[in-house]
Design a protein around this nucleic acid. Sequence first.
RNA 1: CGGGGAGUAGCGCAGUUGGCUAGCGCGCUUGCUUUGGGAGCAAGAGGUCGAGAGUUCAAAUCUCUCCUCCCCGACCA
Length: 412
Amino acid sequence: MYWSKYFLPTLKEVPAGTEAISHQLSLRAGLVNMLTSGVYSYLPLGHRVLRRVENIIRQEMDAIGCHELLMPALQPIDIWKKTGRDVTMKEVMFSFDNKKAQRMCLGPTHEEIITDIAKQFVKSYRHLPVTLYQIQTKFRDEIRTRFGIVRACEFIMKDAYSFDRDWEGLKKNYDLQLQAYHKIFKRCGLDMIVVTADSGAMGGSVSHEFLVAAPIGEDAVWINKDSGQILKDEEGKTPQGSEWERKVAIELGHIFQLGTKYSESLGAVYLDENGSQKPIIMGCYGIGVSRLIAAVIEVNNDPAGIIWPKEIAPFDVEILPVQAGDGVSMGLAQKYYQELAQAGLDVLLDDRDESAGRKFNDADLIGIPLRIIIGKRMLAQNQVEIKLRRNGQVTVVDANKVSQEVLRLLSL
RNA sequence: CGGGGAGUAGCGCAGUUGGCUAGCGCGCUUGCUUUGGGAGCAAGAGGUCGAGAGUUCAAAUCUCUCCUCCCCGACCA
């Protein structure tokens, strides 16, 4: 991608009315744009990050045998009445009447819808187990939005639902999800805190929460420095002793063993080998995809800007010719661009005729992991610099060996 | 919903004891010079001062009502 032809508006100054670092940087780096409180557009650069995170999730979900589908955001309220969640989730639901005076809502989550699908198509133990997932926009009329994309009214979520004939099967599926979650978050460059938690409005019994320590967290945990034991910080449950450390954290994922709560209220049953009818045993598994991006920024930045983890960076490499007007520099820049693109990398070439300072600062701000700097000064000795965003480390390379060196550095 | 802060050009802000044609920086347009950490000179474009009502000879500035955004509390991915 050539920057001069791209849509990448960066902001020099911190936008007014922002406090969270991730909120500021996601706006300044041209990732997102606010329409109204809690409702954001993903601009091209942010959209790229979103796609990368989604693809990691897809790969890990597919790897454990889940199948992707897409359910509607627009839902009749009637289906919610069957589980009573038209009442219990009323506060967060966007609901309204359509022209036929039917009560409708924008889906805050999809247990009811997926269970309805299972009821229609999963009739026999032969159809089990099966796990379905989607990556989709959820709507919740939050009591209070917060920190830009962290707590939004419209946000992107991965939600998976497992269907089993018995609890043993559910436990297997649950464990598969647990392992997949660890891989997903690791690939996104996040160190997670995993705690067993109350299942709240979801119902069911066992659940695990995936949190990441961050100053903007809305939750907190107690970590025992000696034993490694982790407890959720909940009212009146403060553990005693100096070995306990409290950390503020933000929840990115939550998985639940639901059991039969939804299958029973919606009549999702199957026939076993003996021909007897049984409720399907369910689990559900969520990841806040858009929130995850905010969390990544929150824990991967410095005063100059974002520092993207390799796998979810919007581009792999940025090429920065210091003097865009210099034919030799631009010629080399284009050559590297070709070579690296052919090697399968996403490359951003800052071909703008701007001052060096602005280009360097923008590069730091948008945080591409690796930067190739082409300037007359170094070129006089036939040399080019490669700079790592993460630690600022600069490697001086022969101008003829740049692409090889980039590929080597990226493979580390 | 309760408490606190804030709305003036695309962005960041000043101006607010009522008083000239509403200003500054950045960005944007044109030209020339520049280009290793947010360049210089010159000439430009861009405003219902959040909205409505009121007080007044006169309102960005005073009064009332409303709207929006941000932060703190209960909820959640």
